[in-house]
Design a protein around this nucleic acid. Structure first.
Lengths: 159, 159
DNA sequence: GGGGACTTTTAGGCTCGCCTAAACTTTATC
DNA sequence: GATAAAGTTTAGGCGAGCCTAAAAGTCCCC
């Protein structure tokens, strides 16, 4: 299971997650694809991939494609799970629009602790069951949000 | 109200928040106090305070104490509000223990957007009313958490 | 099989945020 | 009022993460 801390940086987690996603939609994953996905230049990606290789999370030979190692895949899946968990929470519980939910998940996925994420998971489960027919606070919340959507309050910048 | 973006770094927000807190519990706030509060060395604090001064968020003369400007205070209060909002959510909704809730708030307060925070606020309101007597998902969740607390699942490291 | 297009790497540079060591100022004490 | 202690700043350095420019490798096509 999950073993030593690893202590990856947010950036490194982003790279792993991107590689995972890419490897699910295309046969080979190239440095260029990763750079595009993460939103950096190719040299930046090269450097980051080098770090991940040193840590044994990806395999990569010069000018070749990039592959997650078994350990790298495990970590990437975990990161991705965090991401999805958060996105779901923002979308289904806080009822944010998909774009905001996604952006927020990206922003927070590296900072949230496992404990909190696990709790969020439990919460999601409880809330999910709740949607079906039963009245109560969640319904109230939905109504409030819908009202706000009709008459949007003035708003500053977005962080 | 809130005007131009400002675009403070997470670190700068931490400094402002620390200064705000300190200024509420002591007459004067010194570089040393700030360094201690933020958890850095005095030279690091000096540098950060210099930046905040340049931006007009604090006033500070060499070897003197540090004061939030009016604008700095506004920003600091806003940051603190974000922090408290999150802490409350983690503690009262997710039912995390106070230490975890606080740590999590610290970790996330710089990344969360205003829009999401506003929504969280609304959600908090709805949930709060819900606690009183009414049955439903929230009660289920509480019970689940309490059960978990009695028979804790095996757990990895904490992020 | 030579050239051009594309990808990848190397080299060098930048900012941010932190550090330590050492110089300097202020404050307290005798 | 000298001096020690504490606080503050200056100077210099380091790693992370990004950048651009240019060199090196790969691929494709005529």
């Amino acid at each position: 299971m999950s073993s030593r801390p690893l202590n990856l940086t947010a950036s490194q987690e982003d790279y792993l997650e991107a590689i995972l996603r890419l490897s699910r939609t295309q046969r080979v994953v190239r440095v260029r694809d990763i750079a595009n996905a993460v939103g950096v230049t190719a040299p930046s990606a090269t450097g980051a991939i080098g770090q991940l290789k040193q840590r044994g999370l990806v395999s990569h030979e010069k000018y070749e494609d990039v592959l997650l190692t078994e350990e790298g895949e495990t970590v990437a899946v975990e990161v991705h799970r965090r991401h999805e968990e958060l996105r779901t929470f923002f979308e289904e519980v806080l009822l944010l629009d998909p774009e905001t939910a996604e952006a927020e998940a990206c922003a927070l996925e590296h900072s949230i602790s496992r404990r909190t994420l696990a709790r969020l998971e439990t919460f999601l489960g409880s809330i999910h069951d709740c949607g079906r027919g039963r009245p109560g606070c969640i319904r109230n919340f939905r109504e409030t949000v819908e009202l706000e959507a009709e008459a949007p309050a003035p708003r500053g910048d977005e962080g």
